[in-house]
Design a protein around this nucleic acid. Sequence first.
DNA 1: TAATCCATGTAACGGGTTACATGATTGC
DNA 2: GCAATCATGTAACCCGTTACATGGATTA
Lengths: 183, 183
Amino acid sequence: MNTLSYGLLSLLAQSSFSGYDLMLRIQPFWPAKHSQIYPLLAKLEKEDYISCELVPQRDKPDKKVYSLTAKGKEALKAWFDQPAAEPALRDEMMLKVFCLSYAKNESARNMLAGRLAYHEERHQTYELKLAQLREKPEWPEEGLPSPKHPLFGAYLLTRKAIMTNEANRAWCEWALSLLPEEH
Amino acid sequence: MNTLSYGLLSLLAQSSFSGYDLMLRIQPFWPAKHSQIYPLLAKLEKEDYISCELVPQRDKPDKKVYSLTAKGKEALKAWFDQPAAEPALRDEMMLKVFCLSYAKNESARNMLAGRLAYHEERHQTYELKLAQLREKPEWPEEGLPSPKHPLFGAYLLTRKAIMTNEANRAWCEWALSLLPEEH
DNA sequence: TAATCCATGTAACGGGTTACATGATTGC
DNA sequence: GCAATCATGTAACCCGTTACATGGATTA
């Protein structure tokens, strides 16, 4: 049971999903390709953490829909009280910034401007996600989801993404303001 | 030539370092163990990106001090104008937050309080780093390092770490404020 | 007609962690 | 006496990406 396994169980705690769905939904939290997820799901099913139902579809390939078993729910609960690993960020740009004084002005400016654009695009995506959350039928009519509401976690995570992204966007702007003007 | 290789070259662009030093210094930007770094350095030396000098020490084990070669400097410059990979964050806690509504109140509170403490500790570390940068003999007497100053990159990165950390700390506080009171 | 989406899988490879291995010095 | 720091290396393993493989439906 590695972290990705628990991630898949976390998603399945909300609702049943196909492997393809799980692959798409886990991306924002734990990037993984289908080639990693399909074999893991087979292993989790074999070890009885999840169960699988084959769902035939017209106009689309048949799919396997996975659900949490009782054993899977127990594993999730036990995982919750274990200490989580520290967050690990890997960002190639940070290595480049480290030796920024060796770069051409133009290279430095392009790099930071590119990252600024990235964060502005991300902001739009996250705001859209918030709007989509609010449109869900389960969304509470007055105010915010409470801690026991199924959407509580997704709401917290979207807010977290927005706040971190905004801090990084602001950093890009500040760093750009320190560079010499374009000629 | 993978990202870690360029990271090592970036550090060596500032000054020569031993493998052990490089291992310690690259941690904040690209976590890697010595078992990954030593073989890479041997490969980079063999391919002439870096050169190596054996430095005997009293009271300490001898060390190998690596320096950038002309080929290494060229590789760094070429790397700079290539587009950087998107940042990748892997944080087990985010997976737990996703299904937070399934957790006990106590578990949820402990998890978030633990992360808050982590960010407060990080803040101290980063402020110390800033202070150490300012105490360096190369630090400019008036104000901040300019974009061509060797310490410019390190300064930007420390500010970035502080800003991102503060956003995450604030998120922890906000999330904790949404949880029910301790009994 | 070519690309994209849905949907599942395997194989090969490279990246990263853990464990094995050694050994002197310093601080608790 | 025990742990940590400095210092280097190898071997086994797990994690993650890329590539190989298939195939119908929709869309540009």
